[in-house]
Amino acid sequence: MSPIVSVRNLVKTYKTGFQALKGVNLDIAEGEIIALLGPNGAGKTTLISTICGIVHPTSGTVTVGGHDVLTQYRAARTLIGLVPQEITLEPFETPLNTCRLSRGLFGKARDDAHIEKVLRQLSLWDKKDSRIVTLSGGMKRRVLIAKALSHEPRVLFLDEPTAGVDVELRKDMWKVVEDLRASGVTIILTTHYIEEAEAIADRVGMIAKGEILLVQDKAELMAQLGKKQLRIDLLAPLDTLPPDLAGRGLEVTPDGHGLIYTYDTRAERTGITTLLNDLQKAGLHMTDLSTSQSSLEDIFVGLVKENA
């Protein structure tokens, strides 16, 4: 199946001469949720803005639903909903009016039943006629989401949807994203929160300094993350591994004072019990045990350092 969003060699150099995107390639499949992770200034917003038509690309091509975003902008943009990073709303308007405007702008006939559904889904219905200036920050962010959903997009861009949103609301929002995916909407979200990517994404892309460092299935990524290490501190240092203990993935630390055992937490048997029994039989005295797991964050920080 051809991707719903396809980005090829996308370069963006701002007027200041700053190159915010350095030849980005990215394919997004219909119906998936992809999370783009990256530090401040990585180029996440620039990438999204270029796809949505707010920023003009310096070179490269972007297609949405097979339509070029520059030459066939009407067909491409009709499919897109955008929730911007900054809260930008007219303070004296009401959620209902601003949603109606969004729907019309994207060429859809007025449909108050749909807007009601969206506002209810986002728990904004009782605020529909309040002036936006009287809403809380979290509500305003939901108004932005409601605006984007008003015109029934097939691809939804969420630029840090949960920034400044409390834990409770964040969970609610994940639920909304889940529901949207169930209705077939493709979702691209940016976030600084690794747990957010873990919680809702199918794929995770990592971006830093205008380059995509990695795009991977979350499941694969999690498999890497599923590996755990057990460190065993020994009373007496070892030079080499006793022959009885060879062949089960055990390593001696450089200083000889410890052993490292790598295992898969999701395997039927981790082999820890047997290992500890065998250590005792081999006459090794243990002084301490500790386990560690590499998180998405470790992988990410590692990647960013490598590219620094």
Binding site: C52, G53, I54, Y73, R74, A75, A76, R77, T78, I80, L82, P84, E86, T88, L89, E90, P91, L101, S102, L105, F106, G107, K147
Partner: peptide, 11 residues
Amino acid sequence: IGTIYELLSAP
């Protein structure tokens, strides 16, 4: 106030 983003991204 920045709401122009919507005009710029609309068809």
